[in-house]
């Protein structure tokens, strides 16, 4: 039982860390939340000598939760300045002007 809990906690923690690195936003809370819960249960189910590993899984998961929360609070979503897209818009407008003059 303890082993199953630990394996699942590690899997969810890894998924959570991946989501933290990727721009998945708050969705990373889901696997990380599960990892935290499972690692806490694993700590409870472990004897004193075996508590070290689940504690590390818990610590890593909590750090990842804090990173996700920090990213959400302090990093504002921005659109890159895309010169090519800007140029395309201008060209489309010039082309449209020609087409409209052809219609008149």
């Amino acid at each position: 039982m303890r082993k199953v809990l630990l394996i699942l906690a590690v899997i969810f923690a890894v998924i959570g860390i991946l989501f933290t690195v990727l721009p998945m936003g708050t969705i990373a809370f889901l696997p990380l939340g599960v990892a935290v819960i499972l690692s806490v249960i694993a700590i409870i189910k472990s004897v004193d000598k075996q508590k070290n590993f689940p504690k590390w899984v818990l610590i890593v998961s909590i750090v990842a939760v804090l990173v996700v929360a920090g990213k959400q609070l302090f990093i504002k979503d921005k659109v890159a300045v895309d010169q090519q897209f800007k140029k395309e818009k201008i060209e489309k407008q010039q082309e449209a002007k020609k087409d409209l003059e052809g219609l008149e």
Binding site: L22, P23, K78, V79, A80, D82, F85, K89
Partner: peptide, 11 residues
């Protein structure tokens, strides 16, 4: 116009 936020551009 619609543009993805820069964090999504690579994906």
């Amino acid at each position: 116009s619609a543009e993805t936020f820069s964090k999504w551009d690579s994906f």
